[in-house]
Simulated assay, not measured.
Amino acid sequence: MTTDTMITEVVLPGVVEPDGLRLHRRAMPVPNRGQALVEVEATGISYAEQSMRRNLYPGQPKFPFVPGYDLVGTVRSVGPDGDDSLIGTRVAAVTKTGAWASHLVVDVDDLPPVPADLDPAEAETVVVNGVTAWQLLRGAELRAGQTILVHGANGGVGTVLVQLGRHLGLRVIGTAAAKHHDALRALGVEPLDYRDPDLAARVRELSPGGVDAVFDPVAGPGVRTSYDLLAPGGKLVVYGNASALGSATSIVWVFVKLLARLYTWNALPNGHRAGFYNFWAGRLTRPTAFRRRLRTDLGTVLDLLRQGVIVPQIAARYPLTEVSAAMVFAETRSRAGKVVLEP
Rank of each mutant, 00 (worst) to 15 (best):
M1W: 13
M1D: 14
T2S: 15
T2Y: 08
T3C: 10
D4C: 10
D4V: 14
P13A: 13
V16A: 00
D19K: 01
G34C: 02
Q35F: 06
E39K: 10
T43P: 01
G44V: 07
G44A: 15
I45Y: 02
I45W: 05
I45T: 01
S46F: 00
S51P: 00
S51I: 09
R53Q: 14
R53C: 05
P58G: 11
P58L: 04
Y69V: 04
D70W: 06
V72Y: 01
G73L: 14
G82F: 05
A99R: 03
A99G: 03
L104D: 07
V105C: 08
V105T: 09
V108F: 03
L111Y: 06
D117N: 13
L118A: 12
L118F: 11
T125R: 05
T132Y: 01
T132V: 10
A133E: 04
W134K: 07
Q135K: 12
L136G: 06
L136R: 01
G139H: 08
A140T: 09
L142V: 08
A144S: 07
A144N: 04
G145D: 05
I148P: 05
G155F: 00
T159W: 03
V160I: 14
L161C: 01
L161P: 08
V162A: 03
H167T: 03
L168M: 13
L168K: 05
G169K: 01
L170H: 08
T175Y: 02
A178P: 06
A178R: 13
D182H: 11
L184E: 02
G188S: 12
L199T: 10
A200R: 13
V203H: 05
R204Y: 10
L206A: 09
P221T: 11
R224K: 12
Y227H: 12
D228N: 07
L236P: 00
A242K: 10
L245Y: 08
A248H: 14
S250L: 11
W253K: 15
F255M: 12
K257D: 15
L258C: 00
N266T: 04
L268K: 14
F276Y: 11
Y277L: 06
Y277F: 00
F279H: 00
A281C: 04
G282L: 04
G282K: 01
A289Q: 12
R292C: 09
R293P: 05
L298T: 09
T300W: 06
L302Y: 08
L302W: 02
D303V: 12
Q307I: 11
G308C: 14
G308P: 11
G308W: 13
V309R: 14
I310K: 04
I310N: 02
V311A: 09
I314L: 12
Y318A: 03
Y318T: 03
P319L: 00
S324F: 12
M327G: 04
M327C: 01
E331T: 11
R335P: 07
V339Q: 02
